Computed example of a mutant assay.
Amino acid sequence: MNPTLWRRLLAEFLGTALLVTAVVGSGIMATELSDDIGLQLLENSIATAFALGALILTFGPVSGAHFNPVVSAADWFLGRRTGTGLTGRDLAGYVTAQTFGAIGGAVLADLMFALPAVDFSTKDRTAGHLWLGEVVATAGLILLIFALARAGRAAVAPAAVGAYIGAAYWFTSSTSFANPAVTIGRSFTETFAGIAPASVPGFVVAQFAGLVAGVGLVLALYPGVSRSTDEVVVAHPADATVRQANAGAAGTS
């Protein structure tokens, strides 16, 4: 059987918290070590990419290591017709755990660097080109994750997802938040990685637009993806029997 819901929610809370701690903490350290903005972003993106890969490996076997409401929402939507993926109750729990985890992670990072626990960001990120960047970053993330699951390559998700987010720091105008929970969490810190609370709604709307676009691309390219939603982001060990039972059917689509 899969882990109980409370264990999965704890994994999502801790994983998202540590992800935001890595994002915010590495941003703080980067600004302390260098005055060059490009170098600061490089240090921040490398630390985030490696941390994300490690966290997926750590928490994936428990909760699937979503750490992201749009990933959880896509998993619920794509799996609802076949009874795979998250249930509606699971989805509500995941989103709540991810959001509070993200806030806790920002607070933890601030405290580790002797900053005020909560100091709302004043960094304005309100602009159409930034929202477009978030649509692109989020759609690409959804497409990557579900393509890996459909192709039976969920085992490489830690490296692939970490690499994608690290790269998207650089090829998107928004530096690839691509995560509503992380966006909310980053509004709680007045540091390199912060975002003003007034800028959060625009980013979140863009991320959900990216979710819609990403799901549309997944359905167009991988019409049988609904049978693979139990493997997002990392397959649970208990899913092996299900995967074997579906193996023959998967080869026909």
Rank of each mutant, 00 (worst) to 15 (best):
M1H: 03
T4Y: 10
L5D: 00
L18M: 14
V20G: 00
G25N: 06
S26D: 09
S26I: 07
T31G: 01
Q40K: 07
L42T: 12
G53I: 03
P61L: 11
S63R: 10
A65Q: 07
A74T: 14
R81M: 09
G83Q: 07
L86Y: 10
T96Y: 02
A97W: 09
A97K: 02
F100E: 07
A102L: 09
V107W: 04
L108C: 03
D110G: 03
M112S: 08
M112R: 09
F113N: 05
T126W: 09
A127T: 03
L132V: 14
T138I: 06
L141H: 05
I142H: 03
I145L: 10
F146T: 14
F146I: 14
A147P: 02
A154N: 11
A155M: 07
A157C: 08
Y164R: 00
Y164M: 15
Y169C: 07
T172E: 05
T172M: 10
A178E: 04
V182Q: 00
I184Y: 02
R186W: 09
R186Q: 12
F188N: 02
F188E: 04
T191C: 00
F192K: 01
F192L: 08
V200Y: 06
G202T: 08
G202A: 11
V204E: 07
V205H: 06
G210I: 11
G210Q: 03
G210T: 05
L211I: 09
V212S: 03
G214S: 06
G216K: 00
V218A: 07
L219W: 07
L221H: 05
S226L: 01
S226D: 15
V234D: 01
H236L: 14
P237S: 04
R243T: 13
G251N: 12
T252R: 15
